[in-house]
């Protein structure tokens, strides 16, 4: 009986072996997404990378040169944009993560008005950066309500300068970045089983000790991930740096440097090189944070351990 079967019996065996390794027909579902990633991300990225190495003079010819990179690092104003980007992105991300911890800690319990507060915290997600920037200009501007109120209360004689400078951009980054940080932190926090804190309290730990020794260490890997995402968003700051910042001075961030090179001076090679420098810097920070994160405990945060 088995003599007639071998050719047909072999085929299912192969399919089984492939299935063992996760290769089956459902894998085809990945295809459209993968194509989109290749077409919309990989190709433009590699094209830009290639472009950034083109010699600055005679951009139409082929060739290979570090000219654009050299130009960026030899120009003090351009070089300074790295520092300016970091000095906006790092504090903004730290503030976003730092503020979302106590808020989400408190939001785990039910209280009156919780839903309203939640809505208020999350609404900025739905506003575009431009809208937020407009709002900041109107509200915190020299003739805005904020300064008006300060003046009425007699707290400031002359308007406090909160827009068109570093503070304005930082504010905008916090307003638009906080909801993401909060939502992420909240979900990480709710993954920690409440019985752990109860257990700690029966063992004599007060609320600070419970947070310090139990909740915080379990939350830290999540906070680091949140920091990375917040940082990436803040690092690419562009509209608010233009609108509520001081694009030619204190908030001349890398994205503006790249924009000006590419679309004001029409030097695409320089623009691409600036963008690549920006990417590498972001990657360095993310790799550093994830390396640190991998050293921490990152297993289950449920009650059973």
């Amino acid at each position: 009986m088995t003599v007639a079967l071998p050719p047909t019996a072999h085929r299912p065996a192969l399919r089984h072996r492939l299935a063992e390794r996760g290769v089956d027909r459902t894998l085809l579902l990945v295809l459209p997404g993968a194509l989109a990633v290749v077409a919309l991300f990989c190709y433009p990225f590699l094209y830009g990378l290639q472009l950034s190495f083109q010699p600055t003079s005679g951009a139409t010819q082929g060739g290979f040169s570090f000219g654009a990179y050299h130009a960026f690092f030899s120009e003090p104003f351009a070089r300074k944009s790295i520092w300016q980007t970091f000095s906006l992105a790092v504090p903004a991300s730290l503030i976003n993560v730092g503020v979302s911890v106590p808020i989400s800690y408190r939001m785990r319990r039910d209280f009156r008005g919780k839903r309203l507060l939640l809505a208020l915290l999350v609404v900025p997600i739905t506003l575009g950066t431009v809208l937020t920037a407009e709002g900041i200009l109107e509200f915190y501007g020299p003739a805005g309500w904020f300064n008006h109120t300060l003046n009425l209360l007699g707290l400031a004689s002359s308007p406090v300068q909160l827009t068109m400078n570093y503070t304005g951009v930082l504010l905008s980054l916090i307003i638009s970045g906080f909801p993401f940080a909060y939502l992420l932190t909240h979900s990480y926090l709710s993954g920690i089983h409440p019985s752990l804190e109860k257990a700690a309290s029966t063992l004599g730990a007060d609320w600070w000790q419970r947070f310090r020794h139990i909740t915080f260490p379990l939350l830290l890997p999540g906070l680091m991930t949140t920091f990375c995402l917040s940082f990436v968003m803040a690092f690419a700051v562009f509209p608010s740096a233009m609108m509520v910042g001081d694009p030619d001075g204190k908030t001349h961030v890398i994205s503006i440097e790249a924009y000006e090179a590419a679309l004001e001076h029409f030097d695409y090679a320089q623009g691409c090189a600036d963008a690549m420098i920006m990417t590498v810097l972001m990657l360095v920070v993310i790799v550093a944070v994830t390396t640190l994160r991998s050293r921490l405990y990152s297993g289950s945060t449920g009650g059973k351990g």
Partner: peptide
């Protein structure tokens, strides 16, 4: 008194061991 001041030992159904 709050739980941390009572000083009773408690064993939880899910053990609630600190996983880290």
């Amino acid at each position: 008194l709050p739980p941390e001041k009572r000083g009773f030992g408690m064993v939880f159904q899910n053990y609630a061991l600190f996983p880290h």
